[in-house]
Simulated scan of single mutants.
Amino acid sequence: MVISSARLDLPRSPTVSNDVWAIRGRVLSLDRPLVMGILNVTPDSFSDGGRFLDPARAVEQARRMAEDGADLIDVGGESTRPGAPAVSADEEAARVVPVLRAIKDALDVPVSVDTRKADVAREALDGGADVINDVSGLGDARMGGIVAPSGAGLVLMHMRGTPETMQRMTDYGDVVDDVAAELEQALERADRAGIARERIVLDPGIGFAKTAEQNLELIARLARLERRLGRPVLLGASRKSFIGALLGGVPADLRDAGSVGACVAGLARGARIFRVHDVRSTRHALDVAHAVLRLSPEGS
């Protein structure tokens, strides 16, 4: 695994580099695509629920993902699949924090915690989390104030409603413009909390309050999102239902090849960070695609 990093010493100016992501004292270069490996410590996630509840098994999975090329590990303790019920902050933290601490003790890899709850984020940051991945885009009014002083990175994702209600909230005028406008509001919330822009990446929320067609349109127009919002885009399409639908209804555990295809398409459209289950295949595909895409078309 190669992580390009340095001690955090970025200029504070109105112009923020879109080629770096500052996360708790180090800077990740976005000169090459970053892969974020998914580690669900939940009993009910749509793809791998129940497999990594034990911290020892979770650490071994994190180690495998790091060896396969993951630049970050994203630990989640609450399923956010469509229709999923909420769990309490206490239960979510009890799932996440022991795994987080075990990974930090065993591996030198940045760890993100996927949570929309400020209380869980506080415990995760106390446990050493490098990034908070907030699917609600600072929907919890206390979240910004907890993340700001930590220096941690922040993923702001677009979602309407909650996992229980979001698929009834897919009415958009222009899905890209509307998602961009709502992410701008999340960025403004982060600004008010004092979170520097170089610490933030943006996620359009594939599969969250989106139809299959809207997911495809968002991926096709990711470059427009990045140009408008001025921060790198994270793509989280791995094993999502729209891939299953495109492939004739294949189940989640047979969607990895389609997921890699979505990542390569997203890279060509401007995505920089990719949240995935199958790290090795995605890493290899992105490295090859990146090598091709970086060549000037005039060389053909």
Rank of each mutant, 00 (worst) to 15 (best):
G161F: 14
L156D: 03
P82R: 12
P43R: 00
R221D: 09
P85G: 03
R57A: 12
A193N: 05
L202E: 11
F208S: 04
R197D: 09
Q167R: 11
R7L: 15
R280E: 14
D287K: 14
A141W: 12
K104E: 08
P297R: 13
G205D: 04
A121Y: 02
A58D: 00
G258D: 02
V96S: 00
Q61N: 11
R57Q: 12
V264N: 05
E123G: 05
M143L: 15
V201F: 12
A70L: 02
A106N: 03
A70M: 02
R32Q: 14
M143E: 09
L254A: 14
L34V: 05
I273R: 09
L30Y: 01
T15C: 10
R239V: 00
L234I: 04
G145V: 10
G139N: 08
P98M: 07
G50L: 02
N133L: 06
A262M: 13
I243R: 02
R199T: 02
D140Q: 12
L187V: 08
L154R: 10
L254W: 10
E217N: 13
L154I: 12
I195W: 03
F46G: 04
I3L: 15
V97W: 04
I273P: 10
A285Q: 05
G173S: 14
L247N: 01
G266D: 09
L34W: 03
R283K: 15
A93C: 08
V292K: 04
K117V: 03
S17V: 01
G244I: 04
Y172A: 13
D256L: 07
V75I: 15
A106F: 01
T165M: 12
D278H: 13
I195K: 04
L53T: 00
R221T: 06
V99I: 07
L229T: 01
V131Y: 06
G153K: 04
R101K: 15
Q167L: 14
T165N: 09
E78W: 04
A252K: 04
I219N: 04
G299P: 10
I38P: 00
E184Y: 09
S300A: 15
V59S: 00
E123I: 05
A285L: 11
R269K: 14
A220S: 15
D256A: 10
R142E: 15
A22H: 07
R192C: 09
G205H: 07
D71H: 09
S112K: 11
V288P: 05
R283H: 12
A148P: 03
L222P: 00
D74A: 09
R239G: 01
D108W: 06
D90H: 12
R197K: 13
M166L: 14
